[in-house]
Computed example of a mutant assay.
Amino acid sequence: MKQYFVPAGEAAIWVSEWGHRDNPTLLFVHGFPDDHKVWSAVIEQLEDRYHILALDLRGAGSSTRPEGRDAYKINRVIPDFAAVIDHVVPGKPVHLIGHDWGSSLCWSFVANRKFSERLASYTSLSGPHVGLLWQWINQQLRSGRPSAIRKAIGQLSHSWYIFAFHIPKLPETLFSQLGTWIWPLTMKQGGVPENDEYLEHSAAEIKSVSVNTIELYRQNAFAPPEVPDAGSITVPIQLILLQNDPFIRPYIFDDIERYAPNLTRRTLDSNHWAPRSHPQQLAQLVDTYVQSIITQQERAA
């Protein structure tokens, strides 16, 4: 494994790299409150066959933390992914995999035509396009249908923490003073196994993945990016629905094919942190999908 910084304008992004660059490249993007190590058990299953990159989001892990709060707006963050791709494998299409906020950020990446040209495929877990999520909630609430309204309220109730994170100083105080208790408790409630080495984060590491990146919520949750046009997301996408996720309910993706017609659905009987609880199954889903994309490309050539 190699590790290094990639310059990305106002941030320096910490990248871990495995495998030979001649192999198909996978780029893993983590969520909140995580760093690239959330993917380690999945990467172990794939590193012999792929060239793998895993980054720390700006502010998280070993990546540098920009000073301005608006540096965490989605349109400021996603160029970091392009910087990593262009630095490590310029001109080579990459298979993108995102979880939680990493997934939400990646949805905006694939919805951007300039950035999407760098990709061969995208695999999404537990993170919607933020603009599409709010559009879906509004549509359900305005529909007048009791079942639709219940779904919207259900997702909002599962997203209670988003509102809590907007209370000034509250998350900073909790994660700074009680982080070594709150963070592993949250991980375990989200499905991380009791004996998982990933739970062994120091107070400084917990601060970097929580306090340093809390602005992802504050800058984007209630000021979402523009909704993409119908049919405009052309990148091949694998959507893995985690059936027991307490934060993201699978039904919020009911009409996602309207925007991403080249989409394959898969399900996993998992809680939120599937990269820790189900690494073998997740790696198999990624491997099978990526190989199918490679086969399609070879036949088209």
Score class of each variant (00 low, 15 high):
D196R: 06
G102F: 04
V235C: 08
E194Y: 02
L156I: 08
S16N: 10
W107H: 12
T288P: 06
K114F: 13
P7H: 06
R49V: 05
V130A: 14
V211S: 09
E205H: 07
M1R: 04
P228R: 05
S270D: 09
V130L: 15
T213I: 14
L133D: 02
F165C: 01
Q291K: 04
A41D: 14
N75G: 06
D196L: 10
H272Y: 06
W134K: 08
A54C: 13
S202F: 05
R69G: 15
V130E: 11
D48E: 11
W181S: 03
W181F: 12
D254E: 14
I162D: 07
P228T: 04
L57Y: 02
Q189W: 09
R276N: 15
G68F: 10
F109D: 13
D70H: 12
V192E: 07
I149F: 11
G191V: 01
L241G: 01
Q291V: 04
E215C: 07
I43R: 10
T180I: 08
T264S: 04
D254R: 00
S62G: 04
P90Q: 02
E197L: 04
L178H: 14
H278W: 00
A120P: 02
P93R: 00
L57G: 00
G19K: 00
L46Q: 11
G31P: 12
S126M: 10
Q135Y: 04
Y198D: 07
E257C: 14
W39D: 02
S124P: 12
L119T: 13
M1E: 12
G131E: 03
N112T: 12
R249C: 03
D269Y: 04
L268R: 06
E67M: 07
N262L: 02
R258S: 15
E200H: 10
D70T: 14
I256G: 11
I237K: 07
G59E: 05
K188V: 04
I97G: 09
